[in-house]
Design a protein around this nucleic acid. Structure first.
Lengths: 129, 129
DNA sequence: ATGCCTGCAAAAGATTTGCACGCCA
DNA sequence: TGGCGTGCAAATCTTTTGCAGGCAT
């Protein structure tokens, strides 16, 4: 059985206290800044354990794996290519369409990931300046 | 200006002749099997060049980058977690919803990627056996 | 000559793993 | 005492890059 050790608790707290989309290194740095000293391997193993336990949620964003709180309703992501900002959205109509698509393909849907790439409002303004 | 050399032509042909979702190593192996001897670095550089030229299309599928023909209509992917098979689909309603979501967030949509994870029919059958 | 292309090997970044040690039931 | 967690360093995997030629214009 997986244990929720002090360090994993710290990781979980850090993730739960924010809306950030953490990657392993970011989290390691934040925890070290917060006074914990946790090896990077422990971070990776801990993140995997927390994910398996359903305590955090993972998204594989192109280059690297990110983690976010799981105590949130399901949502998808808008990703600004200019500044890297990640916004969240939830569109029930899309969710429903996906189920229909899966059914039509006799495909048992277990999950999905929708990423919308583009530029956020702020970056569009700047780009035009 | 990028050149369409013999090797890049071979890469392009290989990709165009199939519906496979190639990664760099798979493509290298296939080309070597076909009699070409192309270094892996050339494959990577070639794939990047072909993608920039719009001749092939890239999807970042979780772990690694894959490439497929670009002379196909836009589509999204159903991915079987059991056997790795990738099916394609196109659902105009989803496309349209995405635009609306982007607009609602004052987000300039440049592209998107929708992956549906689950199990294909064949694997479901097997799993139940 | 110049610019882009190639191969190889080395480097890079992200993640995993081997190993020895430590903690707690 | 056995199992899981930890740290470190080494290994792995995918991708990029440096460098020394090579080909075509």
């Amino acid at each position: 059985m997986k244990k929720l050790t002090t360090q994993r608790q710290a990781m979980l707290d850090m993730i739960n206290q924010s809306n950030t989309h953490w990657d392993a290194e970011l989290l390691a740095r934040a925890l070290n800044d917060a006074g914990y000293s946790i090896g990077i391997a422990t971070i990776y193993r801990g993140l995997t354990a927390l994910e398996e336990a359903g305590l955090i949620h993972a998204i594989h964003l192109g280059d690297k794996k990110r983690y976010e709180r799981s105590d949130k309703a399901h949502h998808d992501h808008l990703i600004c290519r200019a500044c890297g900002k990640i916004e969240e959205f939830y569109e029930p109509q899309i969710e429903q369409c996906q189920k229909q698509v899966a059914d039509a393909h006799q495909f048992l849907m277990q999950g999905h990931q929708l990423l919308i790439f583009g530029m956020c409002d702020g970056c569009v303004q700047q780009g035009e300046g």
